[in-house]
Deep mutational scan, measured.
Amino acid sequence: MGFKLLSKLLVYLTASIMAIASPLAFSVDSSGEYPTVSEIPVGEVRLYQIADGVWSHIATQSFDGAVYPSNGLIVRDGDELLLIDTAWGAKNTAALLAEIEKQIGLPVTRAVSTHFHDDRVGGVDVLRAAGVATYASPSTRRLAEVEGNEIPTHSLEGLSSSGDAVRFGPVELFYPGAAHSTDNLIVYVPSASVLYGGCAIYELSRTSAGNVADADLAEWPTSIERIQQHYPEAQFVIPGHGLPGGLDLLKHTTNVVKAHTNRSVVE
């Protein structure tokens, strides 16, 4: 069995187990497998329904001669939608809004960016022009300005110390501490036991640490421990890039980060 097929099978099995364990909360999309990078042309966006009122959005972007996937989250909030992270750029984010209108038909009224990198804030200006209120932590807003990236308009308070959590509509926002970046936030959907790890969490097929220019490698494993301790009931975990899975993604990420750190020390 090929690795790609095995990865998709694991996603399907995880979703099936969740649907059985929580039949009222989960209505997993039966329309197909989780979209992969090879299936999404740059400039297009796919939506994948995880649970009743919960979707991931998947886009792709060219970077350094390669094409990478990027995940975000959409959560229903009454007759409105909360968006977590842009679709990595203005063109993708405009396509995301169009796809949401086509498939869901509810307005996106608020959006949260989970850290300051372009795959999370690139497209904020498109959201703002569409009347979406954009939010991020003060740290993310400051770092985005320093980096020359787009800056969300509103500040999220109460997320300055490791372990801080605040309720934001249908989700809980959690600051686990520094990891992929010093400002990275985690998003949890309690009604569906869905954990969105953003770039602080890796997919299972990833074996290298990737972009760690703004990471705190020493603190990252401790931050992941905080996530595990705060959300032990999480059933569906979405990484910032690639295929979702279960809580095993947290341990896998820790292993990859520690291996990278150990290699760096040896070198």
Rank of each mutant, 00 (worst) to 15 (best):
S155Y: 08
Y196M: 04
V124D: 05
K258S: 11
G198I: 02
S56H: 04
T60S: 11
A66Y: 05
Y175Q: 04
V187M: 04
A95F: 12
A179T: 04
F168I: 14
H241P: 00
V265Q: 06
L247I: 04
S223D: 02
L173I: 12
G65D: 05
Y68L: 06
S205P: 06
I17D: 04
L247Y: 12
I84A: 14
E147D: 08
T114S: 08
D183F: 01
A178C: 03
G163S: 14
L6T: 08
D183Y: 02
E101M: 14
H115I: 00
P35M: 10
S139A: 12
P138Y: 15
V37M: 11
F63T: 10
E39M: 06
R141T: 10
G158Q: 12
L47G: 01
T114W: 01
R110P: 03
I100V: 13
Y231D: 03
E267T: 15
L5Q: 06
N255D: 04
V265P: 06
V212G: 09
E33C: 14
G53M: 09
D216Q: 06
Y188I: 10
P170W: 03
V194G: 03
I201G: 01
V257K: 01
A98Y: 06
T60W: 04
S27V: 07
R46W: 07
S205E: 12
Q49V: 11
I224F: 03
L143A: 11
P23W: 05
L73R: 01
P138G: 10
L217N: 09
G123I: 02
A144H: 03
G123T: 03
G177K: 01
V237A: 08
A95C: 15
Q229C: 06
W55H: 06
A234R: 02
L127G: 02
G123W: 03
T207G: 11
D79W: 15
P170N: 12
V124P: 03
I50P: 04
Y188T: 03
A213E: 14
A15D: 09
E267V: 11
A90D: 15
I151V: 08
S56L: 07
D64S: 06
P35R: 11
S7W: 09
P244I: 14
A94Q: 12
G246T: 07
K258W: 09
N255R: 11
Q229I: 09
A98F: 14
L156W: 02
V166A: 05
E99F: 15
R120H: 03
K258I: 13
R46Y: 12
S160Q: 12
T14L: 10
A215T: 11
S62F: 07
E44A: 10
S162M: 14
S16M: 15
A200D: 03
L13C: 10
R263N: 10
G65A: 06
V11Y: 15
R141Y: 04
L73G: 08
I224V: 10
V256Y: 14
A66K: 07
F3E: 07
L159F: 04
G177Y: 00
E225Q: 15
D79F: 13
V37D: 12
S56W: 06
P239F: 00
R142Q: 12
N149W: 12
I104L: 14
S223V: 07
L5T: 09
A59W: 02
G78P: 03
E150W: 09
V257P: 01
T222V: 11
A59K: 05
T153M: 12
T109S: 13
S223A: 10
P69D: 05
L143W: 12
R46A: 05
V194P: 00
D85E: 15
V132F: 02
L143D: 04
L83H: 00
H241I: 00
Q229L: 14
E145T: 13
K8E: 06
E203M: 03
D214E: 12
P244S: 12
A136P: 03
A179C: 04
T36D: 11
A136D: 02
V265N: 12
E145H: 14
R226W: 06
G122N: 11
S160L: 15
G43S: 10
S70V: 03
I50W: 09
R167I: 11
V257C: 10
T93N: 06
I201L: 14
S191T: 05
Y48E: 07
V37R: 08
L204I: 06
G65N: 04
K4W: 09
P190D: 11
A25P: 13
G105M: 04
I151G: 10
S208M: 08
E99K: 10
A111M: 15
Q103R: 10
V265M: 11
V126D: 04
A15G: 10
M18F: 04
S155K: 14
H252R: 08
I238E: 01
R76S: 08
D85T: 01
T86I: 03
V108D: 02
E233D: 12
S113T: 10
S16N: 11
E99P: 02
A178W: 11
I151Q: 05
T182A: 05
T60G: 05
T60M: 08
Y231I: 05
E157M: 15
A129Y: 11
D248Y: 07
I84F: 04
S27Q: 05
W220I: 00
A90W: 13
L96R: 01
E80H: 12
G198V: 02
E147H: 15
L9P: 12
Q228G: 12
K102T: 13
E267N: 04
V194S: 04
I201P: 02
T134V: 12
H154C: 05
G131F: 13
D52Y: 08
A111I: 12
A136E: 02
H57E: 01
E225D: 15
G245R: 10
S191L: 13
W220D: 01
T222K: 11
D125V: 11
E33R: 07
Q49S: 07
E219H: 15
V124K: 03
A215N: 06
T254G: 09
L82M: 13
L6W: 11
L13W: 07
V11N: 15
Y34G: 09
Q229Y: 05
T140E: 02
G105S: 10
G158S: 07
H260Q: 06
I201F: 05
S139E: 09
M18R: 04
G169M: 03
L82V: 14
Y188M: 08
P35L: 13
L82A: 14
Q61D: 07
L81A: 13
G240W: 02
H117N: 00
D248Q: 12
S193V: 10
W220V: 01
P239R: 02
V146I: 07
P176S: 12
S16Q: 13
V146D: 12
S191G: 11
Q103W: 11
M18D: 04
P41D: 12
G123H: 02
I17W: 04
D248K: 06
Q229P: 03
D183W: 00
A133H: 13
H57D: 14
N211F: 15
S191P: 04
R142A: 09
V37Q: 13
R46G: 08
D79A: 12
R167N: 13
S16R: 13
V171L: 06
G246F: 10
P170D: 06
A95Q: 09
N184F: 02
V256A: 14
N211I: 07
R128Q: 09
G105E: 06
M1C: 02
S137E: 03
Q235A: 11
H230S: 11
G210D: 08
S22G: 10
L106R: 11
Q229A: 12
L159Y: 02
L250F: 07
P232V: 14
T182D: 11
H57G: 04
D64L: 06
S7N: 04
T182V: 12
K102V: 15
V146H: 14
G197W: 01
V45T: 06
L97I: 03
I201T: 05
S191V: 09
Y34T: 07
Y68K: 05
S223L: 03
L204H: 09
S70A: 07
A218L: 07
V146P: 10
G242L: 02
P107W: 11
A136F: 03
A213G: 11
E80Y: 15
A215F: 08
Y34N: 04
H57F: 12
G169K: 04
V42S: 10
S181M: 01
L5M: 05
A25H: 12
D29Q: 11
G197T: 11
L24H: 15
N184P: 02
F63M: 05
V121C: 05
V126K: 13
V194D: 00
G2A: 05
L82T: 13
H241A: 00
T60N: 06
L243R: 13
L82I: 13
F3T: 10
V121F: 00
V112E: 03
D214G: 12
A87T: 01
V67Y: 07
A51E: 08
V11W: 08
G65K: 07
P152R: 02
V146M: 14
S62V: 08
T140M: 01
G246L: 07
Q49G: 08
K102Q: 14
A111R: 02
Y12G: 10
D64C: 03
A87C: 01
A178N: 11
